[in-house]
Design a protein around this nucleic acid. Structure first.
Length: 747
DNA sequence: GTACATTCTCTTTTT
DNA sequence: GAGAATGTAC
């Protein structure tokens, strides 16, 4: 239908420049007006990226270059997608229908629903969440007897995920690489996992794009339809795209080549999830003749903040390079505080917040940005005690909460009887006296006959295979499900959901928790269930609701009121605040030790980009802090300031370290001058804490103290001493052991 | 066979 | 201080 559409049919473009263009600077305007051909917009932090993106989209529609259903815009978060919709509609002054603006995953799902049969699925396939994935893989892996210690299911899942991120279906994983991991066992598992998903009529998140690639490759005619349909492609946060997303985009863009990617290589912080900075660095090669437009004028931060961020990020190699500038006035220097411990730090932040608030600064304009989620706790406690309102972004998300997932599973079993994973989740919730043995029986029949669990259960209930008690309980449950299914379409779906939760005994289960310490929690859970049911009102059908749940894991919490924001640095990307607190700038925490252990030098650069993201969130004030003593689950550890502190330009920073505390931060001679910060940092660490520290990746032959290793019998550990071919290793589970180096391999 | 209590690990970032 | 894997009591 859209195929018949021609440019000639479009409304004639107005002669004068539309008003929305006039407030843009030259670079921004160029990025908006360069509609034809491939364009890469390198948008530094605070340079008006979203503005350009939305104006460009509005411009394309307003100029009549395409109808709304002929543009596709992809983002990474639902929030970004929503914002894009709203802002474009605002510019154009009308709501826009039928266009493809959404996350990569939602867009992939939308396409895949139309062509599911090409990859052997039915259009109503279910989308598994993380938890389902892990449980499924665990099931599949069980008979293979993987060494749990060496290959925890999470790790296996992670590797499969990474293959998917790289666009590799099981058949495409190279033999060599497949054989590398668990002697090829994982690749076999990957095959099996995909088979199992297909038989469940389910996909995981990675499949949403991976299957699209397969569809495009096997059915050029389908791809051609999309070429015809989409005249313009827009991509947000391109630096975070993975290989699968890149391939997907390239296939879609290859015909018309009207693709515009916006991103900032300095803000690439998702490589651990498969993102490839290479995608943005390589754009020109991928799309010959591409135009590169740099947005370098920063509208957000003071010169001090910009200078500090720029100096810090300059320590990274392999950047495309941008020079951010601003013409706003000086402002305050960054403050770096050294404190005694985490409590001290939280108190300082709370003091500071109170003082700013006393000077009429809104709490909404203050944020505490941490490296890892658990760090928010200390601040929460302190803010609560001071009665300073706050909100925590991230954390346990609404649709990930146990009670919400249980409730959704009930609804899923009703709407999609073949959904084994949902069925399994709730057969024995609330407790119905069904244990592993009974489940085993259900599974056995299902597998033998190749039927879903609901069917095998139905059959077994009619026999004497099960124990009488299990049989009667399941009989009732199956009858309940039948009844509820009969009500689909009859009853308004939120009411049906409420009825299901009531009659299944699920709500009663929480209500019965009357123990003092649990009753508050139970009340919260019941509230969440109510909220879930209320949320269903927004959807036409049960199916539409379930799709939403699968794709939108975000917590749309009410953000009303003046509150301080607490969140991770990752969560803060794209946001801005007048005042930003950056606590926990200590080695091992930031940069995080795990990141360094696993990713070496490139991970260090990513940690640095994370620091850069943190700094550039601030408009007026940045307050960095580190502590000398940090309690990592019941043990006190002494900590040293992050190397990133030494990478800040002294002239833009005020150090307010408490006297007598170890490390005064920026400007310390010796540290700042060390050629490679890595080296400097390490020498320092050696003095302080001897053998516990990780060696950098790439120690030469043999083993070195501090190195992380794996031992067949003892699992993972860290070398403490090396004596010829004898090693002493502190194992994570087995304690300290002496072993011969040939029994050990680098982890 | 199930349900509950006790032990033990491990804590990065998430569409 | 939480989750899972294990052990123990019905």
């Amino acid at each position: 239908m859209s195929n018949s559409f021609d440019l000639e049919d479009a409304p004639v473009a107005p002669a004068a420049a539309p008003p929305y263009l006039e407030t843009l600077n030259d670079a921004q305007r160029a990025a908006v007006e360069a509609t034809e051909g491939p364009v890469l917009v390198l948008a530094g932090a605070g340079t008006g990226k979203t503005r350009v993106l939305t104006t460009r989209l509005a411009h394309i529609l307003r100029q009549g270059k395409a109808r709304s259903w002929e543009v596709m815009a992809v983002t990474f978060t639902n929030k970004a997608a929503r914002e894009m919709r709203e802002r474009v509609a605002a510019i154009l002054g009308m709501p826009i229908e039928g266009w493809w603006v959404g996350t990569f995953h939602a867009t992939g799902a939308r396409m895949l629903r139309s062509h599911a049969e090409v990859v052997g699925l039915k259009p109503n396939f279910t989308i598994l969440d993380d938890d389902d994935q892990i449980r499924l893989l665990k099931q599949i892996a069980a008979p293979h007897h993987f060494d749990e210690r060496r290959w925890p299911t999470r790790v296996l899942m992670g590797q499969i995920q990474r293959w998917k991120d790289r666009g590799l279906s099981p058949a495409k994983v190279s033999g060599a690489e497949g054989a590398e991991i668990a002697d090829g066992g994982l690749l076999a598992l990957y095959h099996e996992y995909q088979e199992r998903l297909k038989s469940l009529n389910a996909v995981d998140f990675g499949d949403l794009l991976l299957h699209c690639l397969t569809v495009f490759q096997e059915r050029p005619d389908i791809l051609a339809q999309y070429h015809e349909k989409f005249r313009y492609l827009l991509v947000d946060e391109y630096q975070d795209s993975n290989v699968a997303q890149y391939l997907w985009l390239r296939l879609l863009a290859q015909q018309r080549r009207n693709i515009c990617c916006v991103g900032d290589d300095d803000q690439s912080i998702y490589s651990w999830r498969g993102a490839e900075v290479g995608n943005i660095l390589r754009f020109e090669q991928d799309f010959p003749g591409a135009r590169i437009i740099r947005l370098e004028r920063n509208y957000r931060s003071t010169p001090h903040i910009l200078a500090a961020a720029s100096r810090l990020i300059a320590h990274n190699a392999g950047r495309l390079g941008k020079t951010l500038w601003t013409d706003v006035g000086e402002g305050e220097k960054l403050r770096v505080s050294g404190l005694w411990d985490g409590e001290d730090e939280a108190r300082m932040v709370a003091d500071e917040i109170e003082s700013l608030h006393g000077r009429r600064k809104p709490l909404n304009e203050m944020a505490v940005l941490v490296r890892a989620g658990f760090q928010t706790r200390e601040f929460e406690e302190r803010l609560m005690r001071r009665a300073i309102p706050y909100r925590v972004i991230g954390g346990p998300r609404f649709y990930e909460r146990q009670e919400v997932r249980d409730a959704v599973a009930y609804v899923r079993v009703v709407a999609q009887p073949d959904d084994d994973l949902a069925f399994e989740r709730i057969v024995n919730v609330p407790k119905r006296g069904l244990g592993p043995a009974t489940l085993q029986t259900l599974h056995k029949l299902a597998r033998a006959e190749g039927i879903p669990l609901t069917q095998s259960t139905q059959r077994l209930v009619e026999t004497d295979e099960l124990k009488p008690q299990a049989r009667s309980v399941l009989q009732k449950l199956m009858a309940d499900f039948d009844r509820w299914r009969g009500l689909v379409g009859q009853l308004h779906h939120p009411d049906l959901a409420a009825q299901i939760l009531e009659e299944s005994g699920y709500t009663a289960m929480w209500k019965s928790l009357t123990r003092a310490d649990k009753s508050l929690e139970a009340a919260g859970r019941l509230d969440n269930l109510k909220e879930l049911i209320a949320a269903m009102e927004d959807f036409e059908t049960l199916e539409a609701f379930l799709e939403h749940v699968s794709l939108v894991m975000e917590n749309e919490q009410s953000n009303a009121g003046d509150k301080v924001t607490l969140m991770t640095l990752h969560g803060a990307k794209g946001l801005e605040f007048d005042t930003v607190f950056l606590p926990g700038w200590e080695e091992e925490l930031f940069p995080h030790r795990r990141a360094l252990d696993e990713g070496g030098a490139s991970a260090l650069e990513e940690e640095r980009r994370l620091a850069y993201v943190g700094l550039t969130r601030a408009r007026e004030r940045v307050h960095i802090s580190f502590v000398a003593n940090r309690r990592i689950y019941n043990q006190w550890q002494s900590a040293i300031p992050s190397r990133f502190i030494d990478e800040l330009p002294p002239e833009n920073v005020d150090v307010v370290s408490r006297p007598g505390l170890y490390g005064s931060g920026a400007g310390r001679p010796g540290l700042a001058e060390a050629p490679a910060t890595f080296l400097g940092g390490r020498r320092l660490r050696r003095e302080r804490r001897d053998a516990e520290w990780p060696a950098t990746a790439g120690s030469r032959s043999g083993f070195a103290p501090g190195q992380r290793v794996f031992h067949q019998k003892f699992g993972y550990g860290r070398i403490t001493t090396v004596d010829g071919n004898k090693l002493e290793i502190a194992f994570e589970k087995a304690g300290v052991k002496k072993v011969i180096n040939s029994f050990v391999e680098a982890a």
